[in-house]
Amino acid sequence: MKRSVIELWVGLFVVAGLVALGVLAFKVGNLSGTDIRDTYAVTAHFDNIGGLSAKAPVTLAGVRIGRVSGIKIDSDNYRAVVELSIDRKYDNLPLDTSASILTQGLLGAQYVGVEPGADEEYLKNGSQIEITQSAIVLEQMLGQFLFGQAQGDK
């Protein structure tokens, strides 16, 4: 085969490979979109986080603004401490913002939704979100519901 043909093929191959890498980074891994690097961290305490796991999204009005960067237990009061890394772009969340653990659909993955309050001051790195709502654990709800039904029947 002629040298120029070989070089053309190699060029095509390299371009195709790089495009594939680009597709993996941007379209599959979503490098440009919601992957957030420059963040500040706030904590929120929950009674029960259900199935929340690290890297779960944090959303405001349905828009992703950060992710769960750590989950641990506060050994004083046995509550879950969830660390949220929030994009620096959203540094104007009021201090009395509330956080709740929600579920995508009925059985989907869990995420943290934040609801802005009305305080004049804003959350900053190291702040704690005071108002939280724990995950709704389906089994508990179901149990309560059946219990209530049984009582109502009496």
Partner: peptide
Amino acid sequence: YWTAMQNGVDVYDDVLNGV
């Protein structure tokens, strides 16, 4: 299909490690 992928696949942890 695409959204679930983009939410769950991390560029650094998954794609870069694969590379």
